[in-house]
Design a binder for these strands. Structure first.
Lengths: 211, 211
DNA sequence: GTCTATACGATGATAGAC
DNA sequence: GTCTATCATCGTATAGAC
């Protein structure tokens, strides 16, 4: 088996280490060490540590976002044809299911999805701004669909509730079984599919609560 | 007006800068610069940057947690006396309202609550571990109360839903009007009290959703 | 006890030789 | 494209003044 090229080796190492240790706790020296390339190769190929983060995001997030956007638009168009508003749970499902499918498609993808979850709730402006640029068009589409699904909610209320829902989603993606509660439950943790179902049920009930 | 002592000046500066820029983007030099103390004063008074973070947490979180614990126990005891399970929304309210009241008690407290919100969703293990130690007994009490309020939910499901709820709470605390959606809503943002009401309504509906 | 000045090793980043 | 050398800045540690 031939080694992937320098750029790919750096991306692979960075994705894994960013997801495991976080952006700021990952040094370029640890990335280049694991990728078996020279320290300066990162700056040559990507320009900076921050630009490397963006490249890591774009490699998988652009295709994944295309998938989610297609699913969302299918739901919206089907509702349009039927002459009734889309169902909130179908919209949420169109958003969540491709993410889960991607995560389960390959063992390496777990690290990427964890990184995405971290980034959705990241307070650090370096990481958050970089991620926000890539994800916001999709969030906007979801909000637009939910406005049609739940026309009784004032826009400000819906936006607030969507933020609640996205926060819950983010945590589910990055730490399916740990935080913010570290409590060691005696019962077995939920598997990926069951967790996604619970997430959809929870957020849907919250979004649809009387106003 | 006499200056507060060195230790307090460091705590004040650190609290503000940690909340604004995050733990890792705040250098000890910027803290000691703003506090107008010598760089080495941090290590003398607190031992390390991480120990300083813990001191910042403890200064306000220990009293606030006592308040929240009292409120939670009042709800639990009132239900006990009435011979019926506590209401989920009362438990959530006992948790959220003292937090909001503290935040509105003094302008400087806003930075601290933002820091707490950041810490609840913090991926970085330095910040999260330090914070978790202080907050987990309270989370445990809340979980315990919710188990009585919602006995029909299997423990694993309830724990999962509580994690969803806490994630939404965390974001509300640290960024009442911005993230993860940066979308500039045309409608006016909700004020603090209304936001808390929406949060209680959302999380309560999610927790009580059929299983 | 408090505080200051200063130094150390590691980091992200860059310039220039090859 | 790659690598070595170098830089400013980071958290930390310590010696010694007051």
């Amino acid at each position: 088996m031939s080694q992937p090229d320098t750029k790919t080796r750096i991306l692979d190492a960075a994705e894994q280490l960013f997801a495991r240790d976080g952006f700021h706790h990952t040094s370029l020296r640890s990335i280049t060490g694991q990728a078996k390339v020279n320290l300066a190769a990162v700056n040559y190929h990507f320009g900076s540590k921050e630009a490397l983060l963006q490249a890591v995001f774009e490699r998988h997030l652009l295709p994944l976002n295309r998938l989610r956007q297609e699913r969302l638009q299918q739901v919206l168009e089907a509702a349009e044809r039927a002459g009734r508003p889309p169902a909130a749970d179908r919209l949420l499902r169109a958003f969540i299911e491709p993410t889960l499918a991607f995560r389960q498609a390959h063992p390496n993808n777990r690290a990427f999805i964890a990184l995405i979850g971290r980034s959705m709730v990241e307070m650090d402006s370096t990481v958050r701004d970089c991620f926000s640029r890539l994800i916001e068009p999709l969030f906007r589409l979801l909000l637009c669909g939910l406005q049609r699904a739940l026309p009784q909610l004032p826009p400000a209320i819906l936006l607030t509730r969507l933020r609640f829902a996205l926060s819950a989603m983010a945590h589910t993606m990055c730490m399916p079984d740990r935080t913010p509660l570290q409590i060691d439950s005696s019962s077995a943790p939920l598997d990926g599919g069951e967790l996604a179902e619970q997430l959809i049920r929870f957020t849907c009930a919250g979004l649809e609560a009387p106003c």
